[in-house]
Each structure stands twice: as structure tokens, then as C-alpha cells.
Amino acid sequence: MVTNTISVSETPQVLYALRRADDALILGHRLSECCGHAPTLEEDMALANIGLDLIGQARALYALAALREPSLEDGRANTEDTYAYLRDVGQYRNLLLCELPNGDFGRIIMRQFLYSAFIDPYWRAMMKSSDAQLAAIAEKAEKETAYHLRYTSEWVIRLGDGTPKSHDRMQAALEFLWSYTGEMFDTDEAEAMLQAEGMIIDASAIHDGWRTTVQTILDRATLTLPQSAWMQKGGRSGRHSEHLGFLLAEMQQLPRSEPGAVW
């Protein structure tokens, strides 16, 4: 590796922006892996569109993090690109849910559904943030995530209530992903500070609404909500699954080996 890993001064505001940005970037990157591999051309475009929406959201949030991060000791400042390309696995702050390998089309749809059912009401609530820039990012993102939720809901219903095979695959995807959903609602001291200032909302307040949305769609899809209450966590503090390293290796290889490369 030619280009060195950056250091990040993670004030609560920076940490918050990086967490939300990393969710969007990593999930967006996972969707980009589907490009050319979806079951039909129509769904290929749909997944790529969603991926592009998420990467756009990530850019806005990285730009915000760069704006709010104190300058480094040598006077350099981080940028969208250095956050994305020059942080190692342990510096990424995304949900474990977002980094899980794609699996089949059913699992891709289920993961996107579980995330969208959370992030859409989350951004809607964040439109009332006392921070004007965060409120603006939320307003733009919510229009996109509302569509992601609609798109994935329709597919969850059709695949769940489809053939015995598609039903079993969707149920298996749900069981596989379920223990990764709890992390979405976690909050910590850094976020509590921002909550107290009215800058961000408490993610755990979204939980009941999320559960109702998920239950409603799963009922129509004839799928069964898993009973297990045990939840994985670690992504928010940089403890990731082994999958993220491979993802970053692919995503970062070019900018790390050819610093400053442009189109």
C-alpha cells in the first residue's frame, strides 16, 4: 500500500456523521456488486439506482464530517475521499447489517427492506434537527429512502407469498439477518450529547414504528418474524465481521495504490 491510512478526530458530531455515512456507503457498495448480476434487467437497474442514492447520501454526510472535523496536526483536513478510501476496517463505523455479503436476490431485498423500514422514518424525524445542514440532508435522503421502502416491500410480499421455494428463501434470509437488526436502534454517550442539543433524534424511538412496518409487510408476505431477541453489535465501534475487510480491499485498492488517480 502506497497511501497511508488517515487518522480521524472523532468528536461526537464527526462520529455521528461517519456512522450514518458508512452505513450508506457500505450498503451502497454491496448493491453496486449486484450490477450486471440481478435476475432481470429491470431489477438490475433498480438495485443500482438504490445503490447510487445511498452513495450520494454518504457523500453528503462525509462532506459534513469533513466540515465539522477539527484540522489535523499537520494542517491537512480530511475529505469525502479520504474517509472512504483511506480508513481501515477498525475505523469504519457502519452497522454490521450493511456489510453482510449479498447472498441471493431474496436476501438482498430482505436486507434492504429491514434497513429502509428503519432509515426512512429515521430521516423523516431528522428533518426537524436543530442543525440546518443535517435537516437538509435528511430531507433529501427521505425522499429516496421512502421509495426504497416501497420497492423492497413489494418484493418481500411477492417473494414471501410466491412459490414454496421463494417463500423458504425469504424466510431463511429473514432468520439470517434478524440478529443484525438490533444495532440500528443502539445509541451511546456520544449520540446522547447530540440528542440533548436537539441535533439528532434518539434512534431507539424509531423501533416500535419499525417493528409495526416490518410485521405488516411480513404478514402480507406470509413470513414469520423470528422470536430471537439476541442481537449482534460492534459495527458502530469498529468491531466488524470478516466480510468488511474484503469489501474495503476491493473498494480501496485503486486509490491506495494510485494516489490521486482521476478519471
Binding site: 410480499i157 407469498d161 410466491g162 414454496p164 417463500h167 408476505a221
Partner: peptide, 12 residues
């Protein structure tokens, strides 16, 4: 047609 095939009719 398979009777359980409710929500996924054939593509058109």
C-alpha cells in the same frame, strides 16, 4: 398453474 402462486403471476 401452481395454486400457491398467488403474488407472483408470470412475467408479462
Amino acid at each position: 398453474m401452481n395454486k400457491t402462486l398467488k403474488a407472483t403471476p408470470p412475467v408479462q
